[in-house]
Amino acid sequence: MNEAPLLAFENVHKYFGETHVLKGIDLGVDEGELVVVIGPSGSGKSTLLRCANRLEEIQEGEIRLAGTPLTASDADVNRLRQRIGMVFQSFNLFPHKTAAGNVTLAPRKVRGIADEKAEERAETLLERVGLSDQRDSYPAELSGGQQQRVAIARALAMDPDVMLFDEVTSALDPELVGEVLGVMRDLAAEGMTMMVVTHEMGFAREVADRIVLMADGEIVETGEPERFFTDPETERAEQFLSKLL
């Protein structure tokens, strides 16, 4: 028997006003799995990710983290969010804090971890994303790629069970994309559970355990990357893939 997925979406419906943007999504992300969600813009993939962190509320269905329903009205959102790391397209680093300050803020304020301990941990995390020499730099002094790597370190500082990546390379200059994907590749290799919304098909094909194609608020097709990219089952997937070339 299969174990329950770490992050489970069950019949998730989401409306923006009249617009039905998620139309009954069922999806499970297993522990240690890397799921890449692709699809044309407006397909709802970013919204799906944001719902998993309750940055957006859903109108129907349920999302569970390790069995705990996080969309319940009485869910302890702040506690659950600590277990879900989120990295944004626009980095959203805190501009008034240094790289280290960005990484230590939540552990210190939310977990009450002592400054020294938090600093040490930040040092380790910044080293892990290749930025140990930038700990005292402010975001405005860093390149986009560096900022995004700090953002990843910041999310990791809360020791999340799962990491969500929302088009994290879309705002980057092409030559900076690689360094961010490299960090994500390392994370995947270490067994981090990841849900990644991206347009980087090369990355998806190479590191994903499973590809999920969304279109018009629905999951059109899911599958192993090799099979999905070489031999898509649905016409919609074939159409989408043909437009990429």
């Binding site: 702040n78 969010r81 600590q82 879900i84 989120m86 939540a106 939310v110 999310a155 809360m158």
Partner: peptide, 9 residues
Amino acid sequence: EAARSLGMS
């Protein structure tokens, strides 16, 4: 959003 996603109230 970034602050809330880290678990801050």
